[in-house]
Amino acid sequence: MNSRRSVFSLAAICLAALLACKEGTDNPAVSRLSVKVHGAGGELTRECVYLPVLLGSNLERTIPSSAGLRIRIEATRDEAHITTSGAFPNVKRTVTQATLEAGYAEEFSLDVQGARYQLNLASQCDDD
């Protein structure tokens, strides 16, 4: 009876340890922002931007598009500011790291030199 109880206890400890390891590999605290632009002619731009993790880190990236649309991303570890130029209406969005971690997706319709384009922002990159 005692040996059976010991086996159960050991199994419970092993299971707890496995769950603890599993929790450790799930979330590495790195957040990503997927930026995609597509129009009638297909996809124009696809970028996966990593938000910094370290305190004091900054990121600035300009994503050019052949249609004359420019997307600028300024990010710290806490939030990402996304602005567009060359489109109507231009997009100005701030997405926090907490929002990205929880899951985020948004689509904007843009008029670039008379042509319609869709800008997709999301927390999931294609390789996720």
Partner: peptide, 19 residues
């Protein structure tokens, strides 16, 4: 300060901040 992670989804992630 430098950080690199081997997490499966983020393998190859390298970040370095010089202050």
């Amino acid at each position: 300060q430098s950080l690199s992670t081997d997490a499966s989804d983020f393998r190859g992630y390298v970040e370095e901040t010089t202050t």
